[in-house]
Nucleic acid binder design. Structure first.
Lengths: 273, 273
DNA sequence: ATTAAAATAAAACATACATTCCAAAAATTG
DNA sequence: CAATTTTTGGAATGTATGTTTTATTTTAAT
């Protein structure tokens, strides 16, 4: 491997790495990925520690550093340490940093919006954590683990959650159908539901009739129903075997999905164990 | 000097230092002052470097550490490093939660999992807020606002994001096609893309060929491309007009989608104004 | 002022470390 | 397929580092 260039800042280094990634050998690419992924791991660790964590030979790290113009690994490491120090010093200021809404041109408007959403969603997640009943979770997990096949139904706004859940479950080898209604076959797909299966429905206000219909089908078969909804007043609640009421973040009357996504993900992965 | 006590956090150490300051010898007081004043300097420096900077003898540092119950200077130093990691890159590291408690009964296990996910996701959202470039956001917004029609493409794990984005955009009266590949018509749907449109692709590792193909189609037409991905090494990055690299929460090597969802939501809603 | 005790600095020590060297393996080229 | 170059991993090397020991200085007590 030949020397690539000389860099003096971490940002420069990162862009050099990404730019020349394809030119690197297999092992050096491995290091490159690790470096980009774990910048703070680099700052403190020793060569052997980092090498072990990145599953490469220690000398590869030195070769990597040399390839990017450093005299050695320690030389490169200094860059990561410097960055960490800089961030730390600004940390105290950052937590106090409150947005003053006054001077906002169009440019930071979107950025501001992002701030609001991420913050609101973050709060929603914390709220979620404290307001989901452990017994409900366990009951849901039991139902799912006993089910021969799981059917997931949600439309419109809730649909992304259903598709994600179906993806997750299939990836941990749990039989799962996504009742997606492709080709307008909502009714037809309901026939797939059998007694010893389980049905998961996600339904937010305004509660769609397609979802209601799926619930009715499940009731008729005697199949257990797990419901994710946004209000204890949801018309589906009384029919559900287990019901989770999730408060989602709301900004300018736009509701998020992140809390439900998170909940659904946790439940799915708990089945993997 | 006799051993004072055993401390396990930097806050503890600091209060121990101030409390026992008068009991310390002259040189140890000198070290104490230095330690309280330059915590960051301790984290990285070597004994000789720090000693020189504090104008004390290296061995004094070891004796100082011993006085506060550490086995040696390096032992004490770890405390400063840990603090630096937590502070400076606070989220980045906490996004990846490692499992520690082995003794969990099955019931709270799921609940615990939810805790971890919501926490990790919450951190990921905070990290997102600070690491998305406002200029990139604005550029993306401009591209979308000028586009005649927006095409959204994502498969497998990223698909829920695409479906959510398509839902949102259509609900604020922005023309948007979801290239969902229903009926295996990935290729055919690419023909919908025209020059004065815009293409949004979401692609995470391992980068699917279907998404790559859509990008190729957009390039051929000269249509601007907005990319959401998980690594600067993404093969799609070089072709994208705007690229957002999002760090998602990770628990037990399961990656979330919430950060990207949040980002996508913000962008979409910024178009409504 | 003298002696004992404590603190400090210098030197010696051992070890952990980054780095280099070399041989084996893999990839590339003719 | 052979030859050559490149890459890789293991061992060797020398240095930097933390720590301990010992001698010296300072401080305190009688």
């Amino acid at each position: 491997m030949t020397k690539i260039t000389t860099v003096s800042s971490l940002e420069e280094l990162n862009s050099e790495i990404t730019q020349n990634f394809s030119k690197l050998s297999k092992r050096l690419q491995q290091v490159a990925e690790y470096v980009l992924e774990n910048p703070n791991g680099i700052a403190f660790g020793t060569v052997v520690m980092i090498a072990k964590d990145a599953t490469v030979h220690p000398s590869t790290l030195i070769r990597f550093a040399n390839a990017f113009g450093f005299t050695g690994f320690s030389d490169m490491q200094k860059l990561f340490q410097k960055k960490l120090l800089q961030e730390s010093s600004s940390y105290e200021d950052r937590i106090k940093l409150v947005q003053d809404d006054a001077n906002l041109d169009q440019k930071n408007a979107t950025s501001k919006l992002l701030d609001q959403f991420s913050q609101a969603n973050s709060h929603a997640l914390n709220y979620l954590k404290d307001n989901i009943n452990a017994d409900d979770l366990e009951q849901a997990r039991m139902i799912l683990s006993k089910a021969d096949t799981i059917h997931v139904k949600a439309v419109r706004r809730s649909f992304p959650i259903a598709s994600y859940l179906a993806y997750l479950l299939n990836h941990i080898n749990v039989r799962c159908y996504l009742l997606d209604g492709v080709g307008g076959m909502h009714k037809e797909q309901e026939h797939l539901i059998r007694k010893n299966d389980a049905v998961i429905v996600i339904s937010f206000h305004p509660y769609a009739s397609e979802t209601q219909s799926t619930v009715d089908a499940a009731i008729a078969k005697g199949t257990p129903i797990i419901l994710f909804t946004d209000s204890p007043l949801s018309p589906l609640k009384e029919h559900a075997t287990v019901c989770f009421t999730v408060k989602e973040a709301e900004v300018y009357s736009f509701r998020s999905l992140t809390a439900t996504m998170c909940l659904v993900q946790s439940l799915a992965i708990s089945l993997a164990h």
